[in-house]
Simulated assay, not measured.
Amino acid sequence: MKLLIVSDSHGWSNELADIKARHEADTNTFIHCGDSELPASSPFLDGYTIVRGNCDADSSLANEQIKRIGHLTLYVTHGHLYSVKSSLMNLAYRAGEIEADIVCFGHSHLLGAELLEGTLFLNPGSIRMPRGRQEKTYMILRLIENRATVFIHQLDGTELVELRQNFTLPKSI
Rank of each mutant, 00 (worst) to 15 (best):
G112R: 11
G106T: 06
G79F: 00
R68I: 05
E114R: 12
S108D: 10
D101G: 02
L141H: 05
V84R: 01
G106V: 06
R133D: 07
L111E: 13
G132Q: 13
R68Q: 13
H107K: 09
I144N: 14
S87P: 08
E99C: 07
K67F: 03
T77L: 09
R94T: 11
L120G: 01
L116V: 13
L81P: 09
L74R: 10
E145Q: 13
T119R: 06
G70M: 03
I66M: 07
M139W: 04
Q65Y: 06
L88A: 04
V76K: 04
L91F: 08
N123D: 08
I144E: 15
S86I: 03
L116K: 15
K67R: 15
I102H: 03
L88E: 01
A113W: 08
L110R: 13
R131L: 04
S108L: 09
E135H: 08
G112F: 09
E117F: 02
E99T: 10
K85R: 09
A92L: 02
F121R: 01
M129P: 14
K85I: 04
G125R: 01
R94I: 12
R131K: 15
E99P: 05
F121D: 05
M89L: 13
G112W: 10
A100R: 00
H71P: 03
M139F: 12
Y138K: 05
E135F: 00
N90Y: 15
G132R: 11
R128F: 11
V103Y: 06
G96P: 00
I102N: 04
G70Q: 04
F121L: 01
L91A: 12
P124E: 03
L122A: 00
H80D: 12
Y75G: 03
K136P: 08
Y138A: 04
R94Q: 15
E99K: 14
L120A: 05
T119D: 12
D101Y: 00
